[in-house]
Computed example of a mutant assay.
Amino acid sequence: MNPPPSDLVEANAKLWSGVVPPNAAAVEMADMLAQVIEGFERLRGELQFEDEPATFLTALQATKEIGL
């Protein structure tokens, strides 16, 4: 079983910067990362690089202002 995300964030922050989460809100936000990570893990293998936007040029054209 993996440690809670807040423990991992605290350990890495302390390792890299010598700072630990300053308050309960910081610990809560670190724990919310678990939901984000789980969401990305569920998408693993389903999306391809070429999925939306199809290409950089397509995205660029879609955001271009008309008439300039």
Rank of each mutant, 00 (worst) to 15 (best):
M1P: 03
M1L: 07
M1R: 04
P3K: 12
P3V: 04
P4A: 03
P5R: 15
S6F: 09
S6D: 10
S6W: 02
D7F: 09
D7Y: 09
L8S: 01
V9F: 11
V9S: 05
V9H: 00
A11V: 00
A11G: 04
A11R: 02
N12V: 06
N12C: 04
A13M: 09
A13K: 02
A13G: 03
A13V: 01
K14A: 08
K14Y: 14
L15V: 03
W16C: 03
W16T: 00
W16P: 00
S17K: 01
G18P: 03
G18Q: 09
V19F: 06
V19E: 05
V20I: 09
P21C: 12
P21L: 05
P21N: 06
P21S: 07
P22Y: 13
N23E: 09
N23R: 05
A24G: 04
A24N: 02
A25S: 08
A25H: 08
A26Y: 05
A26P: 09
V27I: 10
V27P: 01
E28T: 11
D31V: 03
M32W: 15
M32G: 01
L33P: 01
A34N: 08
A34W: 10
Q35V: 03
V36N: 13
V36D: 07
I37H: 12
G39F: 03
G39Q: 12
G39W: 02
F40G: 03
F40P: 05
F40K: 10
F40M: 09
E41H: 00
R42E: 12
R42Q: 07
R42W: 08
L43Y: 00
L43Q: 12
R44D: 15
G45I: 01
G45F: 05
G45A: 04
L47Y: 15
L47A: 13
L47N: 09
L47M: 09
Q48M: 07
Q48I: 11
Q48R: 07
Q48H: 12
F49M: 04
F49P: 10
F49C: 08
E50P: 09
E50R: 14
D51M: 04
D51Q: 04
E52Q: 09
A54N: 04
A54P: 02
A54T: 00
A54S: 09
T55C: 05
T55E: 06
T55V: 00
F56C: 14
F56P: 13
F56I: 06
F56A: 15
F56S: 14
L57H: 10
L57N: 08
L57T: 06
T58N: 13
T58V: 05
A59W: 00
A59D: 05
L60G: 14
L60Q: 14
L60Y: 04
Q61L: 12
Q61K: 07
A62I: 00
T63E: 13
T63C: 14
T63H: 11
T63S: 15
K64T: 14
K64M: 08
K64Y: 05
K64P: 06
E65G: 15
E65L: 14
I66D: 15
G67E: 12
L68D: 15
L68R: 13
